[in-house]
């Protein structure tokens, strides 16, 4: 009798679960919709056409691959599982976004390093400019510091000042 009691509890729970799933399926139309398929396909590149994302590729092969994604989604696969499956089947190049591990991580790291090095370089150059090097170049002197004032104008100002004095 005790065993049967468990059954009485489980049965309505199971029925409720089935009802919930079917209700959800009816609300959202058929799962997976075209949009669900495209959401996954967007993260993949067509394995045959160069540089074409799978969600827009019009070839027959890509239609089949999209159908495959649809089947896998319908079978309850997660997005990650589908992506992993495609990588295992066709290699890393089907991923639109390069992975962040192994040799491929270099593609992400190097631009950041380069930008940081560039910034450091600019800071160094600016510092060098701020602390003028001790050299007697022809560019130094009065005209370099006050570029707008031409020497003849300067001379005239001097003369005028002398007059006042």
């Amino acid at each position: 009798m005790r065993r049967l009691a468990w059954l009485w509890i489980l049965l309505p729970l199971g029925l409720a679960a089935v009802a919930a799933v079917s209700a959800e399926a009816q609300e959202g139309g058929e799962f997976p919709t075209d949009n669900d398929v495209n959401a996954v396909a967007r993260k993949l590149y067509c394995p045959v056409c160069p540089n074409t994302p799978l969600d827009v590729c019009a070839t027959k092969a890509c239609q089949d691959w999209r159908a495959q994604i649809r089947d896998e989604l319908a079978a309850g696969w997660s997005e990650e599982e589908i992506l992993d499956y495609f990588v295992a089947q066709y290699g890393e190049r089907v991923l639109a976004e390069p992975q962040r591990r192994g040799f491929t991580s270099l593609v992400w790291i190097l631009p950041v390093i380069a930008a940081a090095a560039g910034l450091a370089g600019v800071v160094a150059v600016v510092r060098g400019w701020k602390a003028p090097p001790k050299r007697a170049g022809p560019a130094s002197g009065a005209t370099a510091t006050y570029p707008e004032v031409a020497p003849d104008v300067l001379a005239r100002i001097e003369k005028e000042l002398e007059k006042i004095a």
Binding site: Y45, N51, P53, G91, E92, R93, V94, L95, A96, E97, P98, Q99, F103, T104, V107, W108
Partner: peptide, 18 residues
């Protein structure tokens, strides 16, 4: 992608997300 193919032999794609 060229470098990857030359160094490791694996073809990869660097797409818009990158």
């Amino acid at each position: 992608p060229m470098i990857s193919e030359l160094v490791t032999g694996t073809k990869i794609t660097v797409g818009p997300p990158y």
